[in-house]
Amino acid sequence: MARMKFLCDVERCIECHACVTACKNEHEVPWGVNRRRVIVMDDGQPGEKAISVACMHCSDAPCAAVCPVDCFYQTADGIVLHDKDLCIGCGYCFYACPFGAPQYPQQTAFGVRGKMDKCTFCAGGPEEPHSEAELTKYGTNRIAEGKLPLCAEMCATKALLAGDGDVIANIYRKRVMRRGGRPQSWGWQAAYGQNV
């Protein structure tokens, strides 16, 4: 069975922010909510690196462990999704997530946040696929159409890889073999407890 993962090839990422823009546009994510973001380490210094991050769809996901209403579930191919009808906006998944993936529309006094929103691996949510309800709550469902997440598919340098962990790890390994240097499967240790 396939196991969906993200992998960012840091040697290729050129900090163009196209993945962020594509995601926002595809799913019509509101202002202030970023399902995907680009973080630059050592910005402006020699060896600066840009890394694109979103929900990594962890095995034994911390967000699911702490959710007081137990609204997370994992699809058979490892995508971590949540039910916005159950979410109470407590913020706990945001505290627990290693990657800062959970987002909320509000940050107001008395802990009012609104429903949590995060990357769905373009797999929609617990609604009829391609329904109006799914579109407004979770965004489009590309996986049901046999397509991979838009951020990775449109990445100009093919830095961002998404898909079955074995398939994308193979592609990445071939690249590293050809260009030399050490592989860096960023975040896999924290998300899946393993390295490539």
């Binding site: 202030g32 909510v33 680009v38 973080i39 380490m41 890394i51 800062g100 959970p102 987002q103």
Partner: peptide
């Protein structure tokens, strides 16, 4: 690190 995305819950930590 640094990030250009902004939002109340958008962090610059990997």
């Amino acid at each position: 690190g640094t990030t250009d995305q902004s939002g109340p819950y958008t962090t610059n930590v990997l």
